[in-house]
Nucleic acid binder design. Sequence first.
DNA 1: GGGAGTTCTCAGGAAACTCCCAGCTTCAGT
DNA 2: ACTGAAGCTGGGAGTTTCCTGAGAACTCCC
Lengths: 238, 238
Amino acid sequence: MPAGQPPPDESQLRVLVVDDDQNIADVLSMALRYEDFAVEQAANGQQALKGAEDFRPHIIILDVMLPDLDGFEVAKRLAERRAEIPILFLTARDTTDDKVRGLTLGGDDYVTKPFSVEEILARIRTILRRVGLAQDNGNHLSFADLELDDDTREVTRSGQLIELTDTEYRLLRYLMLHPRHVLTRAQILDHVWEYDFGGDARVLETYVSYLRKKLESHGPRVIHTVRGVGYALRMPRS
Amino acid sequence: MPAGQPPPDESQLRVLVVDDDQNIADVLSMALRYEDFAVEQAANGQQALKGAEDFRPHIIILDVMLPDLDGFEVAKRLAERRAEIPILFLTARDTTDDKVRGLTLGGDDYVTKPFSVEEILARIRTILRRVGLAQDNGNHLSFADLELDDDTREVTRSGQLIELTDTEYRLLRYLMLHPRHVLTRAQILDHVWEYDFGGDARVLETYVSYLRKKLESHGPRVIHTVRGVGYALRMPRS
DNA sequence: GGGAGTTCTCAGGAAACTCCCAGCTTCAGT
DNA sequence: ACTGAAGCTGGGAGTTTCCTGAGAACTCCC
């Protein structure tokens, strides 16, 4: 079954991605499908309203800047229809718009562009969990003596609290999502860094170094280098 | 086997190989046909798009450098058609980190030239497994007390973890794919080493030696020499 | 607009890996 | 048993990959 739409699967959660930038829409769609969401796209406000009606998404990812109606207008009309679909807004970083501020009051949320894929996924999980649709029980990851809590953003190793910066946290979280698996450099950069990151891929090594320093003061090495390939989270010994 | 089309067999998975270098396309085609894929070739972007339409491949191997459209353009147009065919990109080693970024999000992947045939086959298996088309039961090989896991890249012998370098791993993996079969030196070199390897064929002996040293510290000899021919993976008679 | 905290760049050096070499051992056939 | 061919393995050169410290650039907050 190579072509056409994937089969409608009622067990999947539906996400409507609304962005007029086709690249961003595609990146999000691919990542979400990979996470087993059903995804549809809309490129402007009118399509978004129609898509919300037809596709009945559980959540909408909505760019604030759209060619016709802006994101807030779309949200407003949906609210008038009593659609009650949670929305994750995408905004430009410098849009210090006060409008954005009030979003989290209504249970909606926003992410600034450029974002990393893992950041979007984390917000979506948070929102879905809040409205009771989370399919995974997972605001909490653990591996060996490592614990990571998404709600409090706390990381502990054998009970000891470890302070991590944002990037360190995202990196560790991504590794803990795939324990023992070897993750390639490309995979890690794609998921943990912002989608338009164009810099030196060696940042990754720097952050691995930071993480190791913090983690290894409380126990043996857990982030292992697989030379020529990437990194893997493992406990030492057979 | 350039002449005549193989008979259409609906049970086979279809691969479209897109490369303007006829040698590379042929090497890949032969290896894939041997693995029981149905294969067609395209030498440029336009042919690739046409081939995708007519042949309806389950996966496309796509060189980034093509005489007309580049590989990314081909991928983009396929995406616009909602073709949703996974793609394995081939890129030059130094092109790696720019545009290739982002590919692993959608489940696509890339391999740098020059590659080894086994590397390509491994990536294809991974991709097909992810989209639910893998006919093989997976990521795990075992032979006697040897276990090899492709996800974690871990190799154990009777439970004991064995650390292998990349080349050692690829060599052992190839042997384990054909247990008890005598594999000729040429076969092994062709599959495990990069296709443009021009060096001394005696590297193979060196690596067999490395592998034996690591494996035999945990049990009896499993890699047996077949003098004048090659090597075979066997358990000693009991 | 200064300061603290964070992210990223860069470069030197360390470590790991691949491959080649050369001398030695093993084997097959006489 | 002898001999040439084939295979084995320790040593090491050359290369690639990775680690890490130092500092520049950026952001956020007061």
